[in-house]
């Protein structure tokens, strides 16, 4: 089962994992991305496109499902204002054996950084507000998947 969501509400990782794992899969891998509060960051804001962000995530999920034999896939991304310590992205992939689940999670988080319409803006305690620039390293990681 593939579940994809873009939302402003908090991500309850335990509840999402329970829903994801309802089928009792042989192998499950996960990636949980949290907002870091170092450097004095007080808020991360995620801008998104009302339709294309979700369809981009769905396309990525579909591509992962075509590449690997997955029993279940969960892909959830926050948008809007997010506080340090909160979960911004959750990727869960399950398959019969570990190799496919692990590869699918790595593929999804790598490609998500370059292919999906999301933009991060950082606000710091000293008043600075900065739009995050895309990193060259992110493109290199994403391109490995062809």
């Amino acid at each position: 089962m593939i579940r994809v969501a873009v939302r402003s509400a908090a991500i309850d990782v335990a509840a999402e994992y329970a829903a994801h794992d309802a089928g009792g899969h042989g192998a499950s891998a996960s990636f949980v991305g949290r907002v870091r509060g170092d450097d004095g960051l007080t808020e991360l804001f995620l801008d998104h496109h009302p339709m294309l962000t979700a369809s981009g995530l769905e396309a990525l999920a579909g591509e992962a499902g075509a590449r690997w034999s997955l029993a279940a896939l969960t892909l959830i991304h926050r948008v809007g204002g997010i506080a340090p310590g909160e979960t911004i992205v959750l990727v869960l992939a399950s398959s019969a054996h570990r190799a496919e689940a692990l590869a699918a999670v790595e593929f999804l988080i790598d490609r998500l950084k370059t292919d999906v319409m999301l933009w991060k803006r950082e606000t710091f305690g000293d008043g600075r507000v900065v739009w995050v620039e895309q990193r060259e390293g992110d493109h290199k990681r994403a391109e490995r998947w062809g």
Binding site: G33, L46, H49, L52, H77, V89, I109, L112, K113, T114, D115, V116, M117, L118, W119, K120, W131, V132, E133, Q134, D138
Partner: peptide, 10 residues
């Protein structure tokens, strides 16, 4: 037509 900077999600 949507116009935007390079994306920075994840």
């Amino acid at each position: 037509v949507a116009l935007f900077p390079p994306v920075t999600g994840g």
